[in-house]
Simulated assay, not measured.
Amino acid sequence: MPDHDRSGDPADILLVEDNPGDVRLTQEAFKEGQIRNTLHVVTDGVEALDFLRRRGDHADAPLPDIVLLDLNLPRKNGDEVLDEIRSDPDLEYLPVIVLTSSEAQEDVVQSYELQANAYLTKPVDPSEFIETVRSIQQFWLSVVRLPPYDEE
């Protein structure tokens, strides 16, 4: 993908979230917000890295335009996933937004030390969440210019 100006195209978004309620809420928020995209969902950190590196069941996965990453994940937590993304030359520029219920200051600091692009605390209110998702779509997939990456 030579260019990230995707304002007219549906975006590929990878949601890394193990809580079925939060997955459903996110799917509904995208639907209600009429956000054109393809939302891919994986439920743990190991599967997230398999998706991003196109391994195993995810051999045909697209490289997403953005990753929404929960911190509290089974098998490999969000910090470990973020660390691996940032140390992989093929993924290091991928926008990663930490989307978690944790408001702990140390989690915020740790996420930014691992070079998260943003840290958002999950709102409980569904309409607030739709607004959050709309903001993500508007800012990260329309406004921001990102470096191009080569898709092999």
Rank of each mutant, 00 (worst) to 15 (best):
R134K: 14
L114G: 02
D70K: 05
E84T: 07
A104D: 13
S87R: 14
T100V: 10
L71D: 03
I130S: 06
Y119F: 15
P123S: 15
P123G: 12
K122M: 11
S102V: 02
E92Y: 15
E106V: 14
E113N: 03
G78Q: 07
T121F: 08
S127N: 14
S111V: 01
I136P: 06
V133C: 05
P95T: 07
N77R: 05
L99E: 01
S101L: 11
T132I: 07
I97E: 01
E103W: 10
D107E: 13
V96W: 05
R86V: 13
K122E: 06
S111T: 01
S101F: 13
L82V: 08
V67K: 01
V124Q: 15
V108M: 13
T121N: 12
P74T: 05
L114S: 09
N72R: 03
P126Y: 08
T100R: 10
L99T: 01
L68T: 00
D125G: 11
N72I: 00
A118R: 12
A116S: 03
P126Q: 12
L114Q: 04
E80M: 08
E113I: 01
V98M: 10
L71F: 04
E131Y: 07
G78M: 02
L69G: 05
Q115I: 08
Q105D: 15
V109L: 12
L68H: 01
Y93R: 11
S135T: 09
D70Q: 03
L91H: 04
K76Q: 06
V109I: 14
F129E: 02
V96T: 09
V98N: 02
D79R: 05
V109C: 02
S127C: 06
D83Q: 13
N72P: 00
D90G: 12
F129T: 04
L71T: 04
E92G: 07
K122H: 10
T132E: 14
E131P: 06
V109T: 03
E92H: 14
I136N: 01
D70L: 04
F129G: 06
S135Y: 14
L94N: 03
V133E: 04
V133D: 13
S101V: 13
Q137P: 01
